[in-house]
Amino acid sequence: MECLEVLGDCFLKLAISMSLYYRYPVANVGILTIEKAKEISNENLYRLAVENKLKNYLYCEKIIFQGKDSNWLPPGYIVKSNNNEKKFTHQTIKRKAFADKIEALIGAFLMSSNYITTIKFMHWLQLDAIPLDQNNHIMSIPPIVASELDDEIKQIYHNEGFKEIEMKLNYVFQNKAYLITAFTHPSKSKHCIVNSYERLEFLGDALLDFLVIRHTFLNYDQNITPGRVTDIKQNLSNNNHLGYILVSFNLHTKIRYNSNEISKHIQSYVNNTNIHHSTNSPVPKILADVFEALIAAIFFDANNSLEFVWKIIEPFLGKILDRSIVNPSLNPMRRFSDKGGKIIQEFTNETESVCLVQMPNGTYYEGRGKNKKLAKSDACQQALNHKD
């Protein structure tokens, strides 16, 4: 069940992210993130399991068929002794177990049917999943920019050399606005006809996680354990890896921003002598954000095709993907703890989460990420990368 749970968890997050993106076309990322957290929370999944009468189908305790500790009762049988009745008719289950079961059921539907059937099951559960139209297709969204701005979009596309990106992707965007938006930082969008990449990045993050996990299940399922899948996902969602990929293909030169500080951070990263040999160099968050936004841009432009998106981005993941699946790094937080490291402080500001850790020798390291978990992982990884 645990592997199905991992797969279902990723698809749940993707389906909810897509639904929120579709239903709230002008909401900022902060609102989308809050609503997503509510929908995928263990408490909400527990509530839906109870309301849909699924609790009677969940068995968490180990089934013992024989002996004094037996707790299995064949259908149609009853217990004569009231003293022993409870162990046959009752079990103690934490609410998270119900949430895990919902995720495992979603994973089971994915493995045994298709996306549309799985989405319908999620609708039956009353989850706010991706809306479907009358033909059971994912509902289309309004154009990312108004059609009367097409000429200005074309001008930006040609003047800023976005064709180079398409050549490296080996994909030509039908709607150039998606491509331009994916490379537009909030500092630039204030004075631009397109919005920033933030909403696309919100969805691209969920798309990348699901596509990687799906690829892993389809191609390496014989070696998969839940812990291994988690390590693979963390490896590939690591900002350092995504930023490294963007720079290695020289796509960072097309990012649109109005900030000297960002320019200095990117240039410092690019000039790092280890950049071409290591993916563990601290990376400006903007680089990873743009890569994830680009994934969502391709997804929308390719008519919501997950298969097509994977076909385009898989070559970019390349060796990092293969290495992460065949020999994923152990969870950096576990390794950090084993070495005697300590978490000193964690906090979240308006744009990201920050974590401060300390190694046994007294050295401090700071990590950043889109949430506390990623920030902690980043901080632990930086501490582990340090060589005395």
Rank of each mutant, 00 (worst) to 15 (best):
I78C: 11
N82Q: 07
L45K: 13
K62S: 07
N44H: 13
N71P: 03
L45E: 02
K68V: 07
N42A: 12
A49W: 02
L73V: 03
N71M: 15
N82C: 02
L73W: 15
K36M: 05
A49L: 03
L54Q: 09
N52Q: 10
K38P: 12
Y59K: 08
K80L: 14
S70G: 03
K36Q: 05
E51R: 05
A37R: 14
V79N: 07
K38M: 15
N83A: 12
C60P: 00
A49Q: 05
Y77P: 00
W72M: 09
E51G: 00
N71A: 09
N71K: 07
G76D: 15
K62I: 08
P74S: 06
L54H: 01
G67Y: 11
A37C: 11
N52V: 04
Y46D: 11
N71F: 06
S70R: 10
P74D: 06
L58Y: 14
A37I: 12
W72T: 01
K62F: 03
R47W: 00
I40W: 03
N44I: 05
L73C: 02
K55A: 13
E39W: 08
S41L: 11
S81I: 14
N42Y: 12
Q66E: 10
I40F: 07
N44S: 08
Y57N: 11
N82R: 15
I78P: 00
I64E: 06
C60W: 04
D69G: 00
N44E: 08
W72I: 12
E39G: 14
P74G: 05
Q66H: 11
A49R: 02
A49G: 01
P74V: 02
P75C: 06
C60M: 02
Y46V: 00
W72L: 10
E43A: 06
K80F: 06
I78D: 10
V79L: 13
Y46M: 04
Y59L: 14
L54F: 06
V50I: 08
N56A: 07
K36V: 12
I78N: 09
N82P: 13
K80D: 08
I63P: 08
I63F: 06
S81T: 05
